[in-house]
Design a protein around this nucleic acid. Structure first.
Lengths: 203, 203
DNA sequence: AGCAAATGTTGATGTATGTCAATTCGATTG
DNA sequence: CAATCGAATTGACATACATCAACATTTGCT
């Protein structure tokens, strides 16, 4: 149950066996079926969650009922509504499972105590936040300055097998901030272009 | 020179007089004139910088020579190219001064030693990163899901006096990811709307 | 297997924003 | 004060993307 978490810790910091052992005490395991909620709009986000297995999405629903996916979370990723978690305000987001999930929940109290008992983990979470911030800044820049086609191409390139296999297209569209129709057209464009270059090469 | 920095520390953590005193040793003061660079594309970002006075912008220049402003940094804010700072890779960003600035530079070595000597500051920087991440996620969501007019209105509302006074419109446009022409038209639209509602009220 | 629901595709059309060019406005500087 | 240069505005037109509707395809369920 904790294999992946321990591995992720080790990538960034070094823990003794006792510390590893101890750290596990602060987490609550939880399984989620496909389509079940981890967090619903209006609830306070009580946990930051580590994904041992499965896949979730983090999204809002606007006035017109449209879903806007802000983030996905695969195995080895953390997911939470940080704002609600930190302030205690009700969340405006939803988190639900796209696949069957095995999760490790960390409450605020548990986090605080864990960081006190294992201060090295402060560093782990700081690095995590840094990387997350860098990635989010990059996504922001690309959403402001690039076309939908460019963003889609780069997204797919970053994960050519897993993304299309595990995430339906209309959710990728939502993640990119475009409509399913537009994504469909973009894909056609791209296959046409790809064929064009293939033809040229074969001439 | 360190007034604002100490104040910002105090907002999030409690330091003794000695710790405050000690912390200052790790910073290098620097002044910058208007238009001077703090970081240029191609250089490695050697510092995270605290702004005691003044205003800077953080931006890239694309292939066509267009500037894209990712961030501004007012007094009391931190600014850096985190990716370059952490990895040592050359930066693809520029940072320059929009106004005369008084800055406090913190190198990687100084940061590491400071955090070792004053571990409480780990928490300060973690909170800083958290807040920054929350804000960036929010901006990302708004850039994906809102119109330029909505984004501009909210931006101005967040700082109705300082923003228009201290930042020229074409830079606000760049920050919003739109052209100066579009921003000009949006502003006209908004004043027309405002007049419309005023007229109604007066009827 | 067979049906219903969800997903993806395509076309016609509308809207927001970008591009390019001309013009005005304002501020700095000689 | 005039000259000049960057900033902001405006108009005509182009492009990217959204919307709505119809249809095709795939998936999930019993």
């Amino acid at each position: 149950m904790f294999e992946l978490l321990s591995q992720k810790f080790e990538e960034k910091i070094q823990l003794t066996e006792e510390e590893k052992e101890l750290s596990r005490k602060f987490f609550t395991p939880k399984k989620l079926r496909r389509r079940q909620y981890l967090l619903q709009e209006g609830d306070v986000c009580k946990y930051v969650t580590f994904v041992e297995k499965g896949l979730l999405r983090y999204y809002t629903v606007d006035e017109r009922g449209q879903e806007h996916i802000t983030q996905f979370a695969f195995e080895g990723w953390w997911i939470s509504d940080l704002l609600s978690f930190l302030t205690g305000e009700p969340s405006t987001y939803n988190i639900d499972a796209l696949e069957h999930c095995e999760l490790l929940l960390l409450s605020k109290a548990a986090e605080d105590e864990m960081l006190e008992r294992i201060p090295k983990l402060e560093r782990y979470f700081r690095i995590l936040l840094q990387n997350n911030l860098i990635a989010t800044q990059k996504r922001l820049a690309s959403s402001l300055n690039q076309t939908a086609e460019e963003r889609y191409s780069e997204l797919i390139q970053s994960c050519p097998e897993t993304l299309p296999q595990r995430i339906p297209q209309h959710m990728l569209a939502s993640f990119l901030g475009i409509t399913p129709e537009t994504l469909s057209r973009i894909r056609r464009q791209l296959t046409l272009k790809a064929q064009g270059t293939r033809d040229k090469v074969q001439e």
